[in-house]
Write a protein that binds this DNA or RNA. Structure first.
Lengths: 199, 199
DNA sequence: TACACTCAACCAAACGTTTGTTTGAGTTTT
DNA sequence: AAAACTCAAACAAACGTTTGGTTGAGTGTA
């Protein structure tokens, strides 16, 4: 009984994720990737027909199951404000722990291929987006739910996106990357705006 | 008095901005850039010693004077809330009108070269950052000014950054890119949090 | 047990193309 | 005439990809 061995395939993808995330599609050659895996460049073509297929497979692999993890805090039964706190905390942890995911999403948006963006939107973000939107309709019924949803995500994602440059600007500290610190800040800002209650 | 003719040089840079912004450094070849300019590839080497120098010149050219325009609304004498509204409105307009600037900043952060990030931070963003930070200390004295400053910028920048994918998510409309709509939304959220006053 | 056979996995070498860059000679401008 | 500018042609290196294998574990037959 012969079956395609998925081990090497996913091992290639695991190594490809940070490479493509940091250097981009045209920034990583097949030889460079093969070197990192410990293969000859030709061996990559045994598992994938060409570079673009390998890249798309890398993205799909990096995005797999992310949708579930992101929607998890939304399914809990708790007061809206508690669900918001939980969501933001989880979002901060996730974004902090897996920066390559954010980078790959960023690069997909920068490339701007509509078909691929539509796929990513529907398969990765749609569930989380709708969950947050419903929460927004409860907590901020006077706002546009679409705008507010992206504001919540943006407050978290943009913060970690700009981490490398924030250290060079006044007041930047390493502890500003602590997910709990960020989550507390974002939650307070969303709930109360510029004038938070004491504590 | 002989000085290098800056005309061709800046014409090259003007054309290089959108190309590098959309495709990245390794995504644009010297031949491709020369074609767009209407030159032979070799001619580029009369104006710039190599590709990297050309790229850095492109960034500097794209970033020039941006610092001034961004700080302009901060110098006005008006109540803090008015200055905030003005700042956010201008930030939305600027980000909307010049998407390539945001893209180049994004790519610089993605690359993560510390020396170049330090340069960009100090020469492009420092003034604006400090101005917003002072405004933050007036409007939201209970917050960390550094975190709050990045929250303000992030609310605007992330919104336009994600424009290409927002259309594929529920509730996305073209009018969500209107700077006035975005400015109104962001200002209300910052001032009041989830529960804005009527109107 | 031994033998022949299959097939996924891997690699060395080479393919044609594209890359960044250089050269040298021509054209335009001053 | 001198300086600034442009180009066709060529360079080595790196690129994505193909070719033609070798290997070793699994399977069926005797």
């Amino acid at each position: 009984m012969h079956s395609a061995n998925p081990k090497s395939k996913t091992e290639i993808l695991k190594i490809a994720i940070p490479l493509f995330a940091r250097e981009g599609f045209s920034g990583i050659s097949m030889r460079r990737l093969a070197d990192e895996v410990g293969f000859n460049a030709a061996s990559l073509y045994h598992h994938f027909p060409d570079k673009e297929t390998l890249y798309i497979a890398t993205i799909k692999y990096a995005f797999a199951d992310k949708a579930q993890r992101l929607t998890e805090p939304l399914t809990m039964s708790a007061p809206p404000r508690e669900r918001l706190k939980l969501l933001i905390t989880r979002l901060c942890q996730q974004t902090h722990d897996d920066p390559d995911f954010s980078r790959l999403v960023q690069r997909e948006i920068l490339k701007g291929d509509e078909k691929r963006l539509e796929l990513v939107a529907k398969e990765v973000f749609q569930n989380m987006f709708q969950g947050i939107s419903e929460l927004c309709r409860e907590l901020g019924p006077d706002y546009d739910a679409h705008l507010l949803t992206f504001s919540i995500i943006g407050l978290v994602v943009y913060h970690y996106q700009t981490a490398p440059i924030r250290l060079f600007l006044p007041g930047g500290k390493a502890e500003h990357n602590d997910p709990e610190v960020v989550a507390h800040h974002v939650t307070a800002l969303l709930l109360h705006g510029f004038r938070p209650p004491a504590g």
